[in-house]
Design a protein around this nucleic acid. Structure first.
Length: 423
RNA sequence: GGAGGGGUGGCCGAGCGGCUGAAGGCAGCUGCCUGCUAAGCAGUUAUAGGGUAACACCUAUCCAGGGUUCGAAUCCCUGCCCCUCCGCCA
């Protein structure tokens, strides 16, 4: 959420952001509501002041045993008017708040203006694509041959988009999860969290998934939501808190399943594990001082890259353009891993700085020093990494001619030292 | 699921229709005092909105939302959260 004052003072910049992000928030409507709201406040507060002084007087009169009938009668009318105006004020206020929630964050100057994926700015490329002297198989072919991915039975239980990993496949994913969690905890200083997978509407609003993306979320009959990413429970952990400066920066990592309806993406990349309704992910979240959030973003991104590098998976890195940038983000790096079987780059991580946009929604503040006013923190997050696409890249890039999968060195300790997955 | 108890300022804790934005204590800040001691004395310290050149001033806030009343921290209703006991249960 943007600061209302900022919108009032910079309407053109906000409109530009709305357009560049291809959002539909109505800035003029907000300005009108804001103006109307302040008018009502001015009027009603005069009446309230009147009521307060009159009430005091009534109290005094009654104590002296004098008659206050006239003034009480008059105040009853004033009270009715106040109550009418309060109702209108509440209505206008609610409209204003919900309108405010539809205004996206303003992109950082580094973010290229663009209309789609093709305008993302590629800034780095790492690693060599594997060279095969045979035609590499896709992960769904290998998954079936080795009996480590069972898509039909997943569909049998839950419908398409709910894959089942089996045997060494399940083990490989767990090895990856443990590897990533250990790495970020030991090497990068993250505190590991296990968090709820069902959250409230308020929590979903705090990080910006709601109201915009409600159709993409799974919800329950009692208005809870299955998390689409650990970002939601983890960033909201300190919702409503005022932190002290020495608590910052906070680094959290959390492994969770993620649930996404993927509404509107039918038929797009739907084979195998590429795009599914439930997947696992290790997520990194940072809560930090506004002055160094962009340094933290660089660090965060490099920590995600480190996972790819130690797994020896080739990838490329891009800054998302305005149209691809998410609603709440100011700047975002995407990491895409190359996978030989599908011969594609697959997004495995988005590392974003939300500046104070989420902090304002979730009301997460800190005191720079004990006697200064609280101000909003900056929040960041990044996947490190999303599991299915990392699995895809390992299965496809590490395959052998005879249909085995070599285990990357760094994972062997998590795989009982085995060197190959084989039939 | 049943039966009770509770949610007040940075913290502890009073208040239970007007004199309470809120006693008292702790912590913090300011000054004074004291050649030692986590000592003593006085003052001061919430947040948000409106308003002002800046003050002043006004409004709201005692978990949240409704209601009663001229007037609510205080009475009534609903919800949320916490605690205790019983039941159930991985």
């Amino acid at each position: 959420m943007l600061d209302l004052k900022f919108i009032r003072e910079n309407p053109e910049r906000v409109k530009e952001a709305v357009n560049n992000k291809k959002e539909s928030g109505d800035v003029d409507a907000i300005l009108d509501l804001d103006k109307r709201r302040r008018e009502i406040i001015n009027e009603v507060e005069v009446l309230k002041a009147e009521r307060n002084t009159a009430s005091k007087k009534i109290g005094e009169l009654k104590k002296k045993g004098e008659d206050a009938g006239d003034i009480v009668k008059k105040m009853k009318e004033v009270s009715n008017r106040i109550s009418d105006m309060d109702n209108e004020l509440r209505e206008v206020g609610e409209k204003l708040s919900s309108a405010l929630l539809t205004i996206p964050n303003i992109p950082h100057p580094d973010t290229p203006v663009g209309g789609g994926e093709e305008d993302n700015m590629k800034i780095d490329e790492w690693g060599e694509k594997p060279a095969f002297d045979f035609k590499p198989r896709t992960h769904w072919e290998l998954g079936e041959i080795l009996d480590i991915i069972d898509l039909p039975r997943g569909a049998n239980v839950s419908g398409s988009g709910f894959p089942v990993l089996k045997g060494a496949g399940a083990k490989l994913q767990r090895a990856l999860i443990n590897y990533m969690l250990d790495l970020h905890r030991e090497k990068h200083g993250y505190c590991e969290l296990r968090v709820p997978y069902l959250v409230t509407r308020e929590t979903m609003t705090g990080t910006g998934q709601l109201p915009k993306l409600e159709d993409d979320m799974y919800s329950t009959s009692d208005d809870m939501f299955l998390i689409p990413t650990a970002e939601v429970p983890v960033t909201n952990l300190h919702k409503g808190e005022i932190l002290t400066a020495d608590q910052l920066p906070i680094y959290y990592e959390s492994y969770t399943p993620c649930f996404r309806r993927e509404a509107g993406s039918h038929g797009k990349d739907t084979r195998g594990l590429i795009r599914v309704h439930q997947f696992d992910k290790v997520e990194l979240v940072k809560i930090c001082h506004p002055d160094n959030s962009y340094d933290e973003l660089e660090k965060l991104t490099s920590e995600a890259e480190y996972v790819l590098r130690t797994l020896n998976l080739p990838y490329r890195k891009a800054i998302l353009c305005t149209a691809d940038l998410s609603f709440a983000a100011a700047k975002c790096y995407d990491l895409e891993v190359y996978s030989a079987g599908v011969d594609k780059y697959l997004e495995v991580s988005s590392c974003s700085n939300f500046e104070d946009f989420q902090a304002r929604r979730a009301n997460i503040r800190f005191k720079p020093s004990p006697d200064t006013k609280p101000m909003f923190v900056h929040t960041l997050n990044g996947s490190a990494l999303a599991l299915p696409r990392t699995m895809i890249a390992i299965i496809e890039n590490y395959q052998t001619r005879d249909g085995r999968i070599k285990i990357p060195e760094v994972l062997r300790g998590y795989m009982n030292g085995i060197e190959y997955i084989e039939a």
